[in-house]
Amino acid sequence: MTELNDLYQEVILDHNRRPHNFRVIDAASAKQEGYNPLCGDRLTLYLTLDGNVIKDAAFQGSGCAISKASASLMTDAVKGKSVTEARQLFEQFHAMITSEPGTPSDDLGKLSVFAGVREFPTRIKCASLAWHTMKAAVAHPSTALRASETDAPVSTE
């Protein structure tokens, strides 16, 4: 059960039980839906942007422990960062969860708890859903609000 404990670390279980930033931002400058059709995980991400800086980030939705904890820690991590920094973090996070088990990866602080996901290929999409959604939200923040009402949600498929 060692691998299982690697996947479900206390931090992840804790964020699943009590997710941070689990709320709606009424006056969000970007809103984006994310959906994993494989397991039905669904979230809505809200960002408040001040120029190029993410002032606030929050989410709502339902999903497995990995996806919920990932959204919780992602919204924590990107708050106060510039859009460029957030994109960079996405790349680092993505590299970490898709790297070969045993290979070293960047120290991502609290986000490193997701390193165990790479032992579970079927769960990588759960961990990356919130990040893909964030990436889509900052890509066109001015249109995201409008687009989210009509366009298909971003998907990890």
């Binding site: 299982l4 996947l7 479900y8 397991c39 999903g63 497995c64 422990a65 579970f120 769960r123 759960c126």
Partner: peptide, 13 residues
């Protein structure tokens, strides 16, 4: 308290 996907992983182990 356990999402089906998480339960599936724990059962698989």
């Amino acid at each position: 308290g356990a999402h089906p996907h998480d339960a599936g992983t724990v059962l698989d182990q």
